[in-house]
Design a protein around this nucleic acid. Structure first.
Length: 498
RNA sequence: GCCCCCAUCGUCUAGUGGUCUAGGACGCCGCCCUUUCAAGGCGGUAACACGGGUUCGAACCCCGUUGGGGGUACCA
């Protein structure tokens, strides 16, 4: 690290556990994490599960799993704990109740009994647009009026009094943003049933956890003035350090077309990319490119390089579209850069996952994976391509089958002479290696029969692998071994087009 | 309605008043290499939304328009 550090930096990632973790969310986590690591600060992970109706334990688990898979480690939060524990808001309800009480006692918040219908009626009565929003009506309710509402069995919500001045946000990414006084009505911080809302809980925890920088999605930009008002109120009652964090609003991650990547789209879920065959290195690299760039002419880099160079002020303000093609391309670059041993291990796990080899591979299978891995490392964009690419090595002769399309194309009657000549050339080989195989085949097919390489080798490729696309031919034959190679040659000779 | 954000190739972006006849990457299209597919090499395609200012000079600054997005919830 050769840039100035700021260990006082404390950022947080605070998702609500609803649904599957999606790419936008993970990108937000990544930028927070990178910002913390770049500055040598602290990355806090907090779970905002105050909406009991929508939150789920599965979603919470998925969140932990996703971050772990990507290697985004947190310094404080669930599992690891920390000085501000607990980090799940469902376990902090007492704190919020207490703060709400103080806000009310200090006159910074008030009880509000108006129903949405009543608010609308008042707007209509004044000849105003009924959709104008809350009108701060209950601010000035007298003791008697409140008592009367209560006697009617109505439970009030708690609203924060918005200040009369303009609220100015100094956004790290967008610059100065001014929200005119009076444009935001007093908003609800505690439900009628006593449950605290995000609008209370989020700033309270940020204050209590000494968060210095709030980096979050653009969708929360318009709630920022409300939060700033809350910070001012919290400062007045002595909750937290009294300073308002600095905000930075990250651009959206959009899906295809012009729509925001919806939680319902399968390709919005981070798990989709893992299943699809992305490696964390590749996905992380691609995600970091959504709103940020390392330099003018490089877009393949490691997470370490990203952390070193990450400047929040260089984050773009405009929304980015997720482009699967480019993501895959970047992923292939990272696959190619993997250490061969590491790559072989990942391929093995993937082959197990895809049912190509047993969960406890035999030493023979392991050996084959190790030898085959280098043949495919630079021709794979996704780990999931391992099964179709290498499957031919692991099937028994009985299981082996030709793909009809390439087989019909390459194993017809015209191929018989090639297959026969190959058989003749290989049968006598005592030393069955890539070199001897290539030599024997070239001299028999290319030189003696004067075939074009393409014509000569396509049938053999299909014979060995069942496909037209495969690892290099001679290497594949060596891995298969003489016996199996000859057996497959014979099978190919007998192939009847279907 | 009101408030706020955004605007460079199809996509991600570089660009912070002259070095821009706008750079890189993905994609796409050629060609080369080649035992297939990749990888690699070479070349090509393609953008400053529009209109006004400011300035000797604007992709960059200001205003407006248009277009997109968000908020205006007892969701987050």
């Amino acid at each position: 690290m050769n840039h100035p550090l700021d260990p006082s930096v404390r950022v947080r990632f605070c998702p609500s556990p609803t649904g599957n973790p999606h790419v936008g969310l993970v990108r937000t986590a990544l930028f927070n994490w990178a910002f913390a690591r770049h500055n040598g600060g602290t990355f806090v992970f907090r779970i905002e599960d105050t909406d009991s109706a929508r939150d789920s334990e599965e979603s919470y688990e998925a969140l932990l799993e996703s971050l772990a898979w990507l290697g985004l480690d947190w310094d404080e939060g669930p599992v690891v704990g920390g000085p501000h524990a607990p980090y799940r808001q469902s376990e902090r309800l007492e704190i919020y109740r207490d703060v709400a009480r103080q806000l009310l006692d200090a006159g910074l918040a008030y009880e509000s009994f108006s129903t949405p219908e009543e608010v609308e009626e008042r707007h209509v009565a004044k000849g105003a647009n009924p959709k104008l929003g809350y009108d701060n009506f209950d601010r000035d309710l007298s003791h008697e009026q409140r008592a009367q509402f209560r006697s009617m069995g109505r439970d009030p919500v708690l609203r924060l009094k918005m200040p009369a001045e303009d609220l100015v946000v100094q956004d790290l990414i967008r610059g100065e943003i001014t929200f005119p006084a009076g444009s935001i009505p007093d908003y609800v911080i505690v439900r009628g049933n006593g449950e605290p809302l995000y609008t209370l809980v989020n700033p309270v925890d940020d204050a209590l956890m000494d968060i210095t920088h709030v980096l979050r999605g653009e969708d929360l930009l318009s709630s920022t003035p409300r939060q700033m008002a809350m910070y001012q109120a919290l400062a007045q009652i002595g909750v937290g350090s009294g300073t308002t964090p600095t905000f930075g609003h990250l651009p959206y991650v959009m899906g295809e077309g012009n729509k925001k990547l919806s939680k319902r789209d399968p390709e919005s879920a981070i798990g989709f990319y893992r299943d699809h065959g992305f490696i964390p290195e590749g996905l992380l690299n691609y995600l970091s490119l959504l709103g940020w760039s390392l330099s003018e002419d490089r877009d393949i880099f490691s997470i370490t390089e990203m952390v070193e160079a990450f400047e929040i002020s260089r984050v773009n303000a405009n929304p980015a579209r997720f482009d699967l093609k480019k993501a895959e391309s970047i992923n292939s670059s990272h696959i190619r850069e993997l250490d061969p041993t590491d790559f072989a291990a990942r391929i093995q796990d993937r082959l197990i996952l895809d049912g190509v080899i047993a969960a406890e591979p035999s030493s023979q299978q392991r050996d084959l994976v190790t030898k085959a891995a280098p043949l495919v490392q630079e021709r794979m964009g996704l780990l999931s391509e391992a099964a179709p690419m290498l499957g031919f090595l692991f099937v028994t002769d009985a299981e082996f089958a030709f793909d009809p399309a390439p087989a019909n194309k390459a194993l017809g009657a015209a191929a018989h002479s090639v297959l026969d000549a190959a058989k003749g050339a290989l049968e006598g080989l005592t030393d069955f290696t890539t070199e001897t195989i290539e030599h024997a085949l070239r001299s028999a097919l290319i030189e003696k029969m004067e075939l074009k390489p393409k014509t000569a080798f396509a049938p053999l490729r299909v014979a060995m692998t069942g496909r037209l696309i495969s690892p290099p031919l001679f290497e594949s034959m060596e891995l298969l071994g003489k016996e199996k190679s000859l057996a497959r040659l014979a099978r190919a000779r007998d192939y009847q087009a279907s």
